[in-house]
């Protein structure tokens, strides 16, 4: 399938929308850190919350200069085990599996 938009047109069409999303992300990390500091807990970079560590690791991937960022972020957040678990502990999912050592 063709890619009809030129790079400049992609920026024209989507920049402001994603500028806002970057600011939302920055404000979210600030908000987490303020709450963590108030509670005497580690801030984003050292958080014990699996999701916050997964978030930071994904953000680092965004600027590593490699392609397929969306696929790689989803893989980073995925459970890479291959055997079924014994029993479902809950119905939902939290959004990120504990990071693997890699």
């Amino acid at each position: 399938m063709s890619i009809p938009l030129k790079a400049r047109e992609v920026a024209d069409r989507y920049f402001l929308e994603h500028r806002a999303k970057v600011l939302d992300l920055a404000a979210f990390l600030d908000r987490y850190d303020r709450a963590a500091q108030a509670g005497g807990e580690p801030t984003t970079d050292r958080s014990e919350d699996v999701r916050m560590r997964a978030m930071v690791a994904a953000i680092r991937q965004l600027v590593d200069g490699q392609p397929d960022r969306a696929r790689r972020v989803l893989e980073l957040w995925s459970d890479h085990s291959t055997e079924p678990i014994d029993r479902a502990p809950m119905k939902g999912a939290i959004g990120a599996a504990p990071l693997q050592d890699r």
Partner: peptide
């Protein structure tokens, strides 16, 4: 499956 469970579940 949802979110972190999708990749594994899709393959199973």
């Amino acid at each position: 499956p949802h979110l972190e469970d999708k990749l594994k579940g899709t393959r199973l």
